[in-house]
Design a protein around this nucleic acid. Structure first.
Length: 465
DNA sequence: TGAAATGTTGGGGCG
DNA sequence: ACGCCCCAACATTTC
């Protein structure tokens, strides 16, 4: 009787899972295992919030497996050692896993493959790295031609998706540690972990009109984004299945605006693939600028200012609202990420890697490829990045994307009584007016940490070639 | 998925 | 009627 190990990493699902399908079709006994690896779980890029989401997701996966006659085996330790031990215990002749492309994941998998029969099948990307290349065989470094080539590969086929197995074989008598029960306030605010919740969120999002997705996704005061990122991060829904669903909904869309909204969202999924490919082909971006000409920016790196940014105490309401939302919920909409990132890099002149690490420490959806790509984009150091002189004005952004100030009021309660437009720049109110609104700057809410116009000039000078 | 500075145009008030 | 100024609105350039 052959035994296969299904090694789960960031594919916490039963639907459209090639590694699981391969294991079932090639072995009579399948041992689903997740290994709690101390490197991602407690290293410098780890996040308690993301771990809590993961643990809850593992509990959900275990329940789903049990419903089909199996269960989740959980181990803790270095993957290569744990898999070696588990293989010996179970007599497994092969290990199946979905391919994961971060530099750490590739090193880890190479170590395992050197000692054990590891078969990587399927991909955490929609189109795996290496599939979307220029004519001359080199990778794309600009998004638009990349997306054109990506789409040019043809429509995704629903038939390519693997169904949920009807039944799963019993893994047998295998030791497992109990799943940790860690909770944060996060779960109530954003999303329930697990495959069923992911599926519901996707269906709900695609059923929404989606016509106004283009504009609404940028609004901080409205729920215009898909809010699927945590699920995609852990593969609770496969990115491929999400793309197929978007593509099909687009084909069936009755009005052009809805089709446009869906294609914009599909484009966001292509951005996700783009940054997975970039990190795969240029792993050094994890440590330094993609652009060699922008490796010597004279960062100020003031620790007190970094601290103010992390804690939402910069005195710029929209920045503080977003940073507090991040700290409380482990998530921010994309527009908010761009605003706070621009503020850290181009107002405070702090190294984008500090912001990258803080985001990884906080984000439930924190992913090395997408996070690094986003930060390098904002800093102007990355592939197809924003030019260095593109500097967000936090007040203008606040007016444009939180017109009534509802988002600010939600996350910065000190400003709750402040009307719009004053709420976007409360320092312009006279002290008397501040008092009357119950929010005196310097007492109830910080004075702005800097003057944007001055900071802008400083940054232009620092970046100027 | 920028914003600020600078340039251009045209309506309206006014002598 | 005409020239002049102001200024909003829009366009272009620059960072």
């Amino acid at each position: 009787m052959t035994t296969a190990i299904w090694w789960i990493r960031r594919d916490l699902r039963l639907a459209d899972n090639e590694a699981l399908s391969a294991a079932i079709s090639q072995a009579r006994r399948v041992v689903p295992v997740f290994i709690l690896d101390p490197v991602p779980l407690s290293g410098p890029m780890s996040s308690d919030k993301r771990n809590a989401f993961l643990f809850a997701g593992l509990r959900a996966l275990d329940a789903d497996l049990r419903a089909l006659g199996s269960r989740l085996i959980l181990r803790r330790g270095r993957p290569v050692e744990e898999l070696f031990r588990l293989s010996a215990e179970t007599g497994a002749s092969i290990i199946f896993a979905e391919e994961d492309y971060s530099p750490y994941a590739r090193r880890r998998d190479a170590q395992v493959a050197a000692e054990l029969p590891l078969s990587l099948v399927g991909s955490s990307a929609i189109r795996p790295p290496g599939l979307v290349m220029k004519q001359d065989g080199t990778p794309y470094t600009v998004f638009t031609p990349f997306s054109r080539a990506w789409l040019g590969l043809g429509p995704l086929q629903l038939g390519d998706l693997r169904p949920v197995p009807a039944r799963l074989p019993d893994p047998g008598d295998v030791e497992s540690i109990p799943v940790l029960d860690e909770r944060t306030a996060t779960m109530d605010v954003l999303s329930r972990p697990g495959e069923a919740a992911a599926r519901r969120r996707l269906e709900q999002f695609l059923a929404e009109p989606a016509a106004d997705y283009d504009d609404k996704r940028n609004r901080l005061d409205l729920d215009g984004t898909s809010r699927l990122s945590p699920y995609l991060r852990f593969g609770m829904v496969s990115a491929r299945a999400a793309a197929v669903a978007a593509q099909n909904a687009q084909a069936e869309a009755r009005d052009g605006a809805r089709a446009k909204g869906l294609s914009t969202w599909l484009n966001e999924l292509i951005w996700r693939d783009f940054y997975i490919h970039i990190l795969y082909h240029f792993p050094h971006v994890r440590h330094t600028s993609f652009r060699e000409t922008l490796r010597d920016i004279p960062w100020r790196n003031d620790p007190a200012e970094f601290d103010a940014w992390c804690n939402g105490q910069t005195g710029y309401p929209v920045v503080d609202a977003a940073m507090r939302q991040l700290r409380q919920t482990g998530w921010m909409p994309n527009r908010a990420r761009m605003i706070v990132a621009s503020f850290l890099v181009k107002d405070l002149l702090i190294d984008w890697r500090w912001g990258e690490r803080w985001f990884m420490n906080q984000l439930i959806d924190g992913d090395p490829a997408a996070n690094n790509g986003g930060w390098q984009w904002t800093a102007g150091t990355g592939t197809d990045a924003a030019p260095y002189f593109r500097i967000f004005n936090p007040v203008t952004q606040s007016h444009n994307f939180d017109p009534e100030g509802a988002y600010i009021r939600r996350w910065v309660p000190e400003l709750a009584a402040m009307p719009s437009p004053a709420i976007h720049e409360p320092w312009r109110l006279k002290q008397q007016a501040q008092q009357a609104l119950g929010c005196l700057l310097g007492r109830d809410y910080p004075q702005p940490i800097l003057d944007h116009a001055t900071a802008r000039e400083r940054t232009l000078a620092a970046y100027r070639p």
